[in-house]
Design a protein around this nucleic acid. Structure first.
Lengths: 137, 137
DNA sequence: CGTTACGTTTACGTTTACGTTCGCGTAAAG
DNA sequence: CTTTACGCGAACGTAAACGTAAACGTAACG
């Protein structure tokens, strides 16, 4: 029951990040695993946060931006103005993400078309190579 | 007709990037504006490329990855194996982007929910502040 | 013709996000 | 009890993506 705790190695392997990265996130207050003796132990909530961190990174957000969003996720112990500020930045990020979502859709279509063009060009190149084999080692 | 050419200032302003960035992209072979006299002039194709560059950046791709994709966009002067390589990396990027698209959709939903929770928490905090006004400067 | 404005290249500085030792503590294995 | 393995934090190193500053060309303005 208390054994949903993972060592740094286990975290590292199951998320595909280095131990160094995990320590870095802790020192940046992005993660706060328990300290048992000399070691750190990562709970379910730490895993949820890490998931968000890695997701944010994939979308091109800086760790700083990600940290601001994460502050929204523990509304305890926070006062009013801090919560307000977190909400404001979260709304901005949300707007960014929606914009990105749209653009990403277009970019995917674009790239698909471009790949098709590239494939067509490739066929022509191969045809030419067949017709006039200039250099064969 | 040849006046779809822009100076570095115009580019800078219309895309919201610094001249320094444009020069950096040129020195990285991401852009290749004409050299007229001492200056550089950016064509329509340069603008298209820059658009792709900035878009790629927003999705968290490195300039190096972006450069590989861009190579797909001028299938001229390229040989067979180069085009094949470009296609391969482009397909990989496309897969990444589709994955990102899905994740981004989930992330947006998540964040929306989280914002609603935050708003609820805010209302409670305000209610408490009304009931027991402890500190008012 | 001097100055102001904009452009160039070159070189070095800076920030972000870790990688790479390092010296140390601890814990298990032999 | 030593060796081996893992973990920690501190310090320094590094690659990417520019920013900043220096030294210079040129064009136009008054």
């Amino acid at each position: 029951m208390s054994e949903d705790l993972m060592s740094i190695r286990e975290m590292s392997r199951s998320f595909g990040v280095t131990p160094r990265a995990l320590r870095f996130y802790r020192s940046s207050d992005l993660l706060s695993p328990l300290r048992r003796g000399q070691s750190r132990l990562y709970s379910k909530s730490d895993r949820a946060r890490l998931k968000l961190i890695l997701r944010g990174k994939r979308f091109g957000f800086s760790l700083e931006q990600i940290r601001e969003i994460l502050e929204l996720y523990n509304p305890a112990e926070k006062n009013l103005s801090q919560t307000e500020a977190a909400l404001t930045t979260a709304r901005e990020r949300l707007a960014d993400m929606k914009q990105q979502y749209l653009e990403l859709g277009f970019a995917i279509t674009d790239l698909e078309e471009q790949i098709e063009e590239g494939e067509a060009a490739l066929l022509k190149l191969r045809a030419l190579a067949e017709a006039a084999p200039s250099e064969e080692k």
